[in-house]
Design a protein around this nucleic acid. Structure first.
Length: 297
DNA sequence: CAGTGGCCCTGTCTGC
DNA sequence: TGCAGACAGGGCCACT
């Protein structure tokens, strides 16, 4: 379940082990892994064969490597990936036996280590897409609606705060809205809300400016701390050490702590069903203001 | 147009 | 022991 910090660890791994190499062959072992490729798996493989992979980039939880594909015109193309819930990108010796859930294999012309996309639940995917100029940089075509993440130096705090408070939705939905802010998943949303003492169903238009500012600061702090931990655990050939990167050994304040005491007040953390998933929160620290008296926040 | 909710997947775990 | 159901959840997409 990689969240943004984990994805950035993967990006660094790709930059170290894969950027600059030329693809000899791209094997698709499961069609679902390339389901976003408009012209299908054969097209995916054809576009990668012979392509040299450029600098590893990331936006939110998406990763991409530019490629020198003349078919895509002036801006070129990119190999785009999303790990979903269970995706891993592994750099493996070609002699290593195939992983059970190996979906895509990239062999390189230098005969060195392969890049393998392994994904048990197949929520992740790879695709080759054209790059498009957006806001002074080039993004894969399907990412143009994805907002910057709060760790991006060019993330616009003021614009985010205005947009957040103008929305007619609830605060956790807004945190997970990738067109508003990217890279915040279910876990970090719950963590940021706990730090901010905000209930997940709090209407965004009842947030005071200070509470909205605090929420953004807390989301950024949670992710920065996680990135620091993930970054230090990465020093092997495993581009993604998903599931073994200290993800669950990391100290979480709310997520996954149902029934355990809140670190602030001791009240048992509660889990509630929310949008076909779960929300963890402290029922005492994170209360909903009474309807129609929301100004008192 | 903005907001809402269903759905895609499969391995693991729990309860009857 | 076996089976059914809950659960994990990011993002797409149909619908209101």
């Amino acid at each position: 379940m990689p969240e943004l910090p984990e994805v950035d660890v993967v990006r660094r791994g790709l930059a170290r082990w894969v950027s600059g190499r030329t693809v000899a062959e791209a094997q698709v072992l499961h069609p679902r892994a390339v389901r976003r490729q408009p012209a299908g798996a054969v097209d995916f493989s054809a576009r990668l064969a012979g392509a040299t992979l450029g600098e590893a980039r990331r936006r939110g939880k998406y990763l991409w490597l530019p490629i020198d594909d003349g078919d895509f015109g002036d801006h070129g193309g990119a190999l785009l990936g999303h790990l979903g819930m269970s995706g891993q990108l592994l750099v493996q010796d070609p002699a290593t036996p195939d992983e059970t859930h190996l979906r895509v294999r990239l062999r390189f012309t230098d005969g060195g280590r392969e890049l393998r996309f392994v994904d048990q639940r197949t929520f992740g995917h790879l695709a080759v897409e054209p790059l498009e100029p957006v806001g002074g940089e080039e993004l894969p075509a399907s990412l143009t609606h994805i907002a910057r993440d709060p760790l991006d130096p060019r993330f616009d705090d003021a614009a985010f705060l205005v947009a957040l408070r103008a929305k007619r939705t609830t605060v956790k939905r807004a945190l997970l809205d990738q067109s508003l802010i990217s890279g915040v998943g279910n876990i970090y949303a719950d963590e940021a809300l706990w730090r901010s003492k905000l209930h997940y169903d709090r209407p965004t238009d009842t947030l005071t400016r200070p509470s909205a500012e605090g929420l953004l600061a807390n989301a950024r702090a949670v992710m920065t701390a996680a990135l620091a931990v993930g970054g230090t655990s990465f020093d092997s050939l495993y581009v993604n050490v998903n599931g073994e990167s200290g993800y669950f050994s990391r100290s979480l304040d709310a997520y996954g702590r149902e029934g355990q005491p809140c670190y602030r007040c001791g009240t048992p953390i509660r889990r509630e069903a929310w949008m076909n998933r779960s929300s963890y929160f402290c029922p005492r620290c994170q209360r909903l203001p009474r309807p129609r008296t929301a100004r008192q926040g």
